[in-house]
Nucleic acid binder design. Structure first.
Lengths: 106, 106
DNA sequence: ATCGTTTATCGTCGATTAACGATTAAGGAG
DNA sequence: CTCCTTAATCGTTAATCGACGATAAACGAT
């Protein structure tokens, strides 16, 4: 229930949709497009806009207004943040007790 | 839309709830408990059971039946799988074009 | 000032999720 | 066999999500 749990859950939740993973992949390859994402995905413009909003609120991307369009880019800080939150959890993995050898389970 | 996208989304979606992150943390610390998780979280037994089911279906944990109880453990393979899917994506990050310097955005 | 382009927001609808209590199923202990 | 414990499942309810079309807002160009 820690704050880190909530933050990790927020980032993971934003990742938890195939369309949003695809969007991140598009942004990783290309530069920062916007309406181009609509062209790259089989989704309506409003739907893509919604997904972008979710990703932005979770901190995965940034959006810069550029005239009539908005330029989206990956947020590099998000990587570090994800790793800093995920690694401690995954690090414990390695040393985690194995059920089948634990007396509490047999 | 690749298969990897769907898999990543599936794992992330399962992580995308604070209670499930907490459950993973409990399993990382302790050994593999089961009803103990109910005691560690402010949730009803049926709710915890549901979350465990989600985590198991996503491959995050394994469940071994042990008499009248079930012993849950972190699935070590999940770490590797997550990393193998996530790292290539995050790796592209570093080389991703920056919006503010791209001609397509100015 | 008006038009066309681009994106965000609104309203809606069906599907899914999260939570709970109640019930059922499976074993171990007496 | 009968209790007791443990966990999974069922049924329900409220809330959230995902998708869409339609609309509105912001801006550049004519």
């Amino acid at each position: 229930m820690s704050l880190a749990d909530a933050r990790l859950a927020q980032m993971a939740k934003a990742l938890g949709h195939p369309a949003r993973v695809s969007i991140l992949r598009v942004l990783a390859n290309h530069a920062c497009v916007c309406g181009d994402i609509v062209g790259a995905l089989p989704l309506a413009q409003s739907t893509v806009s919604q997904h972008l909003k979710v990703l932005k609120e979770a901190g995965w991307i940034t959006g810069a207004i550029d005239g009539p369009r908005t330029c989206y880019a990956l947020n590099r800080d998000a990587i570090g943040e994800l790793r800093s939150v995920l690694d401690p959890l995954l690090g414990q993995w390695e040393g985690a007790a194995d059920c089948s050898q634990e007396p509490s389970c047999t």
